[in-house]
């Protein structure tokens, strides 16, 4: 019987530039793969995101009638924030759980592709899916509540941080929990984000314990940065909120990366 006498060159021995180029190409291919495999459901997903965003505005309008200027701003900026967070915290874990159940995620993990790239590719795809709903939600909110929005330049990176944080949390959740539990958790989170988080209303309406809790969770800072990014004349982001969001973003990305690399 013959024996193997040779082995491949280890990845670490290849030049950094080559590895970066490979990673870039592989990320593009993963994005392409994700987009093509969901090509049939993609229009529906985008439509659902648009409906969610615009319907939230319409629903808020029915609930509150004609709010004052400040309440109108909260509602107009809150709806797109909810839509953005929902993509990461709800749709991402549902998609990952489905891949785990089908077994395709396992198979992908046997490929010689850095596992962090799966996160980057998924995040990109889900952000692209959320984008039309986000923009239309902002426009609908501005019209419905007569809100004077003036988006700043840093709204785009801020929205990306919000998207990255929520998607990374969703990814970590779906990677670590059993698929059925992860899907259930994601549905509970929709409820919490929509009704019990100071995104579309001021935090001081909540009981003290809830305010204290939200002071350490990422959801309120997410709402604050989107709100201030859309209406910089009326809102600012406390420095503490940037720190809390930054820490959560870092921890979530590290956690998701670790969950992806984790082997059983």
């Amino acid at each position: 019987m013959s024996t193997a006498t040779l082995a491949p060159v280890a990845t670490a021995q290849r030049p950094l530039a080559v590895r970066l180029a490979d990673s870039w190409a592989q990320t593009g291919l993963l994005i392409q793969w994700q987009l093509r495999r969901s090509a049939q459901s993609l229009p529906l997903l985008v439509l659902v995101q648009i409906l969610l965003s615009v319907a939230t505005i319409a629903g808020y309008g029915l609930l509150v009638g004609h709010p004052d200027h400040l309440a109108g701003l909260y509602l107009a900026t809150g709806a797109p924030t909810v839509a953005l967070i929902t993509v990461g915290l709800v749709m991402t874990p549902q998609a990952v759980s489905q891949s785990r159940t089908e077994g395709s995620l396992d198979w992908l993990r046997t490929l010689p592709v850095p596992r962090g790239l799966f996160l980057v590719a998924d995040l990109t795809v889900w952000t692209l899916i959320a984008l039309p709903g986000l923009v239309l939600g902002i426009i609908a909110g501005a019209i419905r509540f007569d809100a004077d929005l003036a988006p700043t330049w840093w709204l785009v990176p801020a929205a990306l941080i919000v998207s990255l944080t929520s998607a990374a949390v969703g990814y970590a959740m779906a990677s670590m929990l059993a698929p059925t539990v992860a899907q259930l958790m994601s549905q509970v989170l929709v409820f919490v984000v929509l009704l019990f988080t100071p995104i579309s209303f001021p935090a001081d309406r909540m009981p003290d314990w809830a305010q204290n809790l939200h002071a350490w969770l990422p959801l309120e800072p997410m709402a604050q940065v989107i709100r201030a990014g859309l209406a910089p004349h009326d809102f600012t982001v406390p420095g503490r909120s940037w720190i809390v969001l930054g820490v959560w973003c870092l921890a979530a990305v590290v956690g998701a990366g670790s969950a992806l690399r984790k082997r059983g």
Partner: peptide, 23 residues
């Protein structure tokens, strides 16, 4: 120690579908 190198040496066919049914 070197899972990424090992992945370059193996092909895996599992009990579940690896290919995507929409493609």
């Amino acid at each position: 120690e070197s899972p990424h190198v090992v992945r370059q040496l193996i092909g895996v066919t599992g009990q579940y579908a690896s290919v995507d049914e929409n493609l």
